[in-house]
Simulated scan of single mutants.
Amino acid sequence: MTTPTMISPYRIEIPQADLEDLAARLARTRWPDELPDVGWSYGTPTSYLKELADYWATGFDWRAAESRLNAHPQFLADIDGTRLHFRHVRSADPAAIPLLLIHGWPFADFSALIEPLTDPARHGGGPAFHLIIPTLPGFGFSGPHRRPGDGAVERSAELLARLMGELGYDRYLAHGGDAGSFIAPQLGRIDTGHVLGVHVNDPITIPGQDEDGSAYDERDRQRLAKLQQWGQRDTSAYAGSHGRPQTLGNGLNDSPAGLLSWVIEIVHTYIDPAKDLPEQAMDRDRLLTEISVLWFTGTIGSSMALYKESDVWGTEFANSGVPTGIAVFPSGTSIRAVAERQHTVVRWTEYDRGGHFAAMEAPDLLIEDLRAFAAGLA
C-alpha cells in the first residue's frame, strides 16, 4: 500500500557555523608525505590537493554558490518514507516537453543546461523543455537514506516514476549519465507507457560472459579493450570499495580533505582525456560546490550505497522498446553492439571532446544532442 506523496518548497540555507567548521577542519589537516615524480599514478597528489583544499577553505565563496543553487525552484518530496529533493523549472512555452535529468556518482551539475533548455528562443533555438532535476536518494539534499535498498538504482527509478506522476506529467523524456544511464532506461522498462524516449551519455555496457568481442566492429573492439584495461587497473578499485559504504563513510564524513581527495581522484580519472586536471575540464567553483553539498549534507557514505544495493552490474537488460539516444564522449567505453541489443537506439553520436561528466564538461554538446534527439521523436 502506498501513502500520499507530500511535496513542499525547499531552500538551501547552510548555517554559518558549518562553514566555519569546514574551514577549521581543512586548516587542521594532517598531510602525508608524497613520493616525488609519480604524478597521479599513486592517486591524488598531496601537493595538488593542498592547493585545492586551501582554495576551498579561503577562496571559494559558498554563499555565492548557495545563491546560484537557490535561483531555481526546488522542493522536497516524501514518497513512501523516502525523501527526494528535486528542482522543477518549467518553461514558458506551452508546448514544452517534460525532461527528467538524472545524475550519477558523485554528482552532476545540470545548471548549464537549465536556461538553454527551458528558454531556447534566447539560447539558439530548438524544442523547449520543462526540467525536473532530482537528487538521488542518499545524495545531497535528499539526505542520508534511512533504509537498506533505498540507494539502489532500481528503487530510484520507481521513485522517479512516482514523482513524475505526482507532478502531472503523463508523457516525458528521461536523460541520465553514470548511474543515471542505468536509471533512465529502467524508467523505460517500468513506466513504458509514459516514457517518450530515453537519452543517456556514455552508458556502461558490460558484455555477456561468453562475449569475446570477435563479432564486434573495430571501434567496439577498441572500446572492449579499453573497458578490460580499466577493469584490470587499480583505477577500477573505487567501485569495489564503494561496496563498503559505511567503512569509507566513517572516514570521509569526518575529514573534508579526505573527502576532497577521494572525489577528486575519481573525477580526474573520468574527465576528458585531453585535460590534465579537473579544473581544466570543468569550472573549479562548480566542482567545489558539488563537493561542498556532499560535505554539508553528510551524504558521502550514503551516496555510495547504490554500488552495494544495485543489481545492475553485468546484467543483461531487456530492451524496453522505448526510443533511445546515446551520446558518447572521449572518456567513454560504451560498446555499440551491446547498447543496440539492450536498447532501441535511434540516435548514436560520438563527440571529440568532453568526458564522463558531460553536463559539466561539455554542456553545449549535451544540449545539442538532447535537442536533436527530442526533435527526432516528433
Score class of each variant (00 low, 15 high):
His123Arg: 07
Leu277Asp: 11
Ser292Leu: 12
Ile102Asp: 14
Gly213Arg: 13
Arg25Cys: 01
Ile7Asp: 10
Ala239Lys: 02
Asp254Arg: 03
Ala375Trp: 02
His130Lys: 14
Asp234Ser: 10
Phe317Thr: 05
Tyr351Val: 01
Ala128Val: 07
Glu340Trp: 13
Asp352Trp: 02
Thr44Ala: 10
Tyr238Ser: 00
His72Pro: 03
Val338Pro: 09
Gly231Val: 06
Ser142Val: 01
Gly208Phe: 11
Met6Pro: 05
Leu69Pro: 13
Asn250Val: 08
Arg171Leu: 12
Leu287Ile: 14
Ile7Tyr: 04
Glu290Gly: 02
Asp54Gln: 15
Ala179Arg: 09
Leu49Thr: 08
Ala327Tyr: 00
Ala152Thr: 00
Asn319Tyr: 00
Glu158Arg: 00
Phe357Ile: 11
Phe60Trp: 06
Pro203Tyr: 05
Asp37Met: 08
Leu294Tyr: 13
Asp54Val: 12
Trp105Arg: 03
Pro15Ala: 11
Gly165Thr: 01
Asp220Trp: 10
Ala215Leu: 11
Leu101Trp: 14
Ala71Tyr: 01
Pro245Asp: 05
Tyr10Cys: 00
Asp54Ser: 15
Ser181Asn: 07
Leu100Pro: 04
Ala237Gly: 12
Ala71Asn: 07
Thr269Val: 11
Lys275Gly: 06
Ser241Cys: 07
Asp254Ala: 12
Thr269Gly: 11
Gln232Leu: 12
Val293Ser: 08
Gly188Lys: 03
His85Thr: 11
Leu259Val: 07
Leu187Met: 04
Ala378Trp: 05
Ala337Leu: 12
Arg155Phe: 04
Thr315Asp: 05
Ala374Trp: 00
Gln342Ser: 13
Phe317His: 05
Ile266Asn: 13
His85Pro: 06
Lys308Val: 02
Ile114Pro: 04
Gly258Val: 01
Ala179Phe: 09
Gly125Tyr: 12
Pro98Arg: 06
Lys226Leu: 09
Ile7Arg: 03
Ala71Lys: 04
Ser334His: 07
Met282Lys: 08
Thr44Leu: 01
Val346Tyr: 02
Gly59Leu: 04
His175Trp: 12
Val198Ser: 01
Glu340His: 14
Thr29Glu: 15
Asp21His: 06
Ile14Tyr: 08
Gly208Asp: 15
Ala274Arg: 13
Thr2Phe: 12
Glu218Asn: 08
Ala179Gly: 10
Ala327Val: 03
Pro106Asp: 09
Arg233Glu: 15
Val322Ser: 07
Phe60Gln: 14
Pro116Asp: 14
Ala161Trp: 02
Ala339Trp: 05
Pro330Trp: 06
Thr299Trp: 00
Ala157Cys: 12
Gly59Ala: 05
Pro144Phe: 04
Leu136Ala: 09
Gly125Ala: 10
Lys226Asp: 15
Leu224Tyr: 01
Ser111Asn: 06
Thr344Tyr: 01
His130Met: 14
Met282Cys: 04
Gly251Asn: 09
Asp18Lys: 14
Val293Trp: 06
Ala53Gln: 12
Gln74Ser: 15
Phe139Trp: 11
Val338Met: 02
Leu365Met: 07
Ser181Val: 00
Ser303Gln: 06
Pro32Tyr: 02
His130Gly: 14
Leu365Asp: 10
Ile190Phe: 01
Gly39Ala: 05
His268Glu: 14
His199Thr: 02
Ala257Phe: 13
Val267Lys: 08
Thr192Ile: 05
Ala23Tyr: 10
Met360Gly: 10
Asp285Gly: 09
Ile326Glu: 11
Gly143Asp: 12
Thr315His: 08
Arg147Glu: 14
Ala184Gly: 06
Gln232Lys: 07
Pro98Ser: 09
Gly197Cys: 10
Val89Trp: 01
Ala237Trp: 15
Ala372Phe: 01
